[in-house]
Design a protein around this nucleic acid. Sequence first.
DNA 1: TGCGTATATGTCATATATGACATAAAGTAA
DNA 2: TTACTTTATGTCATATATGACATATACGCA
Lengths: 103, 103
Amino acid sequence: MKANKRRKLEAAGWKVGSSQDFLGLTDEEIEFIEMKLALSRKVREQRAKEGISQTELAKRLGSSQSRIAKMESGDASVSVDLLLKALLALGLPRKKVGQVLAA
Amino acid sequence: MKANKRRKLEAAGWKVGSSQDFLGLTDEEIEFIEMKLALSRKVREQRAKEGISQTELAKRLGSSQSRIAKMESGDASVSVDLLLKALLALGLPRKKVGQVLAA
DNA sequence: TGCGTATATGTCATATATGACATAAAGTAA
DNA sequence: TTACTTTATGTCATATATGACATATACGCA
């Protein structure tokens, strides 16, 4: 696990208890988090492209504005399931969703 | 209620080709289910390629054999999060995971 | 046949994710 | 400034996912 990768994760808003906890994460756990953050960023980007508010997206999803905000901030309480549903609700085709994850 | 119905449909062996037949599901819901099933199939394929049992994969994941079985059978009670973690635990790189979703 | 292994299916207590809600903060325009 | 909109943050009751477990089924191979 490289230091610059850690800085990227922290800058993206992922909260970790301590350095030990963070360094204790396996590469697979880091990969998983990075995928979630990529989806998170894509939601914000795509919502901006659609020109709608968090409240509007929440209505489409049957969710709430606060959860959309947590979603876009990379909050760990948000599941990948919800992130995927959000991207689909924003009109992103499945192929593009996959590209986000792969990138 | 609606979610419960979908769960039973999936558990009963719902296949991608017949997804359009189930009225009441939006295109986005169908896309989401298809992505989950693609991941599900990939887990079984990749585990076979690794030549390990469901029990062994469960140990790697900190899960249980029964959950792996549900995972591979496309049971709706399994989250995308767990499916992704399983594929990563099977050594599939992030890029390949994305390709599974996009396909 | 039996015996060991792998997989499937169902249940359940508990852990986790969720929407709802309140409220703060930040931006916008008058 | 005020009034309004959007976004951020925290809490909480409830819905959902989870691992553990029991047990059934299947698939070898002796």
